[in-house]
Design a protein around this nucleic acid. Sequence first.
DNA 1: CAATAAACGAGACGGTACGTCCCGTCTTCAG
DNA 2: CTGAAGACGGGACGTACCGTCTCGTTTATTG
Lengths: 213, 213, 213, 213
Amino acid sequence: MAERKTQPKSEPTSSVNGAASRGRPRSMRAWKAVLDVATEILERDGYGALTVDAIAAGAGVSKATIYRWWSDKADVAMDAVLAAIESEIPVPDTGSLRKDLEQQLINVVDMLTKTSHGPAIAGLIAEIQSNERVGEAFRENFLRSRREAAFTVLRRGRERGELNKGIDFDVAVDSLYGPVYYRLLLGHQPLDRKFGKALLAQLCRGLLVDPKA
Amino acid sequence: MAERKTQPKSEPTSSVNGAASRGRPRSMRAWKAVLDVATEILERDGYGALTVDAIAAGAGVSKATIYRWWSDKADVAMDAVLAAIESEIPVPDTGSLRKDLEQQLINVVDMLTKTSHGPAIAGLIAEIQSNERVGEAFRENFLRSRREAAFTVLRRGRERGELNKGIDFDVAVDSLYGPVYYRLLLGHQPLDRKFGKALLAQLCRGLLVDPKA
Amino acid sequence: MAERKTQPKSEPTSSVNGAASRGRPRSMRAWKAVLDVATEILERDGYGALTVDAIAAGAGVSKATIYRWWSDKADVAMDAVLAAIESEIPVPDTGSLRKDLEQQLINVVDMLTKTSHGPAIAGLIAEIQSNERVGEAFRENFLRSRREAAFTVLRRGRERGELNKGIDFDVAVDSLYGPVYYRLLLGHQPLDRKFGKALLAQLCRGLLVDPKA
Amino acid sequence: MAERKTQPKSEPTSSVNGAASRGRPRSMRAWKAVLDVATEILERDGYGALTVDAIAAGAGVSKATIYRWWSDKADVAMDAVLAAIESEIPVPDTGSLRKDLEQQLINVVDMLTKTSHGPAIAGLIAEIQSNERVGEAFRENFLRSRREAAFTVLRRGRERGELNKGIDFDVAVDSLYGPVYYRLLLGHQPLDRKFGKALLAQLCRGLLVDPKA
DNA sequence: CAATAAACGAGACGGTACGTCCCGTCTTCAG
DNA sequence: CTGAAGACGGGACGTACCGTCTCGTTTATTG
């Protein structure tokens, strides 16, 4: 995504957008081939091996075409990742806040470890550090929807009275996801379901003994 | 650090290591100049602008000299960051676990935001994603001591009976630091003392209402 | 010109050619606009800056239209130059071969220096070196008429007995025009009327002292 | 040549130039390989097919190295041509101006047609039209010495009283070489020894009948 | 006090990828 | 059927860094 130069969202063909749609329409083949090849390279060789020339060659597409629609290789990588993670994020609704959060945490952990998206996403986050545009796009197109899903879960929990008072949702979500990405990026400890569950248990219960007890 | 090729640790002077040490000794001037310039570039222009050529030119040092002592530009950056963060990490000991943890969290947040090390460290973490050696070094030379300090604090708290039972220290430390680095790297929400305190409050108390209450 | 793909010659209107002429007729506006813009770019920025995209954009014409009627940017340039040099080449006829030749030489020099066609023509000649089709067209549409005019002048002179015996007209014409284009293309010495006159004087009289005198 | 960035002339190694000669010395292998490959491409495929990438690939040299020493592909081509035409230009000295000039003209014609340098030189002259730097270099490194040789011949002839009075050497040289390059570049008539001889005959004798006779 | 040997500055080297530019072709829709 | 719009594959351009190398030049220790 990130600064699509002409099209506002994903679909390349559109046609039926209000405007006139003059000139040769964007090639769906090229669009798909680019993302496919990018995804393949990301999964096979990692973000570091992703090259605009390689994408172009592999997709049978000219570099000019890539740069016409994406500003960066990071921009392509973002679209590739987003397309690969089919964007359906099921918001769990088991009736129990605890269970909903656990499910969500497991979903994230699984996506980052059981699929091959983990390194790609880590690569994108790395890119953010030297390319603010990528940060913008990542937050907008990837993070936001995930956070909103978490917000929904928390909101439901609060309405059922399961949540402690005075919890800041932003802080809560960061304390759920933060440690997961911390392990993804730093690699100092394994990232797996066991960790997700232990983390959740601890977050729910709190670290300290209740002073009133 | 990371795989110093000849020298075991930081100091460049050597001389009095067991072996003979013939030939011209390592230049302290060059060593210092490299790290100074690297630090300066990191602080002024960020990790993306850090270039071995730029360091060499700025330090009046040849590239060969840099590569003789550091394996990578990431390696230089690491040493620069470590040298800049004076490695003394005071382990707080107020007698209260809660206060110790808060102090530690504030120390980290301040280091990442009040000094100019934040972007440099973020850049290093980015580098890890495509350079495993950097990861090794980062965990070894930077992370470990911080985590051990946190372990010490937690241990003292447990001995005083302030800590809930069954807390996994690794998970606990990740839940303290993870969210901080998450905000540093993603930039979706501000990273400041206020966040540190809110985070700590939430971690101590837990998210959910006590089922037994 | 050069290989007009559909139209035999310059005029774009067609319509009244024998055939039926179905569909939308060729746009005179487009035809004129292309040549005007090409001429303008050639005169303002030189041959190197001439770009099919620039012509299309400047003329409000599509590239496809340009390529439908011209084979090349060189082809466009040629037409532009030919159109700009109004093709009437007056053949001087003063009654004196010497004066006729001088007038002709001055005409060429003026056209190449006093107007802005010099660089455009130099650019075309440059193009010939890597594009034989341009050479063909240049000789056919530009050179030939000029040479024939010179032939006419020489023929008249010969009939009046002013010309030495055994003069090869082709060689003679090359010795008149060659040095002029040599200076145009190489730029080692100024190209001006003074040069034209000196050249002519020398050619008429010969370099060497008459052995019989 | 054209703007050699460090070395004033051809030889890359030098070593014994007055200055210090610090750093790794220029690679003679690279220097030679570049010019050899460039010459080969020029002779085999012509100037239009000359590509910096192709030279780099063929010579086993990086593009950076080429651009370090030559500003342009035109610059490389120039050096290649100059190196190929071993710069020894024998100045004929037969005792007869007429014969000397004829020899010189034949030398030029042969060089342009019997060897494969003709197209390369034509390509360079084409390049001049859009690259003034090339013009400068061409005049300086190629033209000048040739013209000076012709001047020498003319000067000797004048001293022997073979030359008409009032001959401008610059004009005379242009009238000798101009027509040759005219045919080389325009291709409207064959360029061969026969033409050279006919041209010289005509130049020596003059076009017009002697009015005094 | 010479010989030796390592480290130094300078900077050229082979590579790889970048992002831009232009070419000539194509594909759509409007007149 | 022409024309404007403009996307497309192709391919060269010139730049920027990387990490390695080859010099001549210090600067110690050793014999």
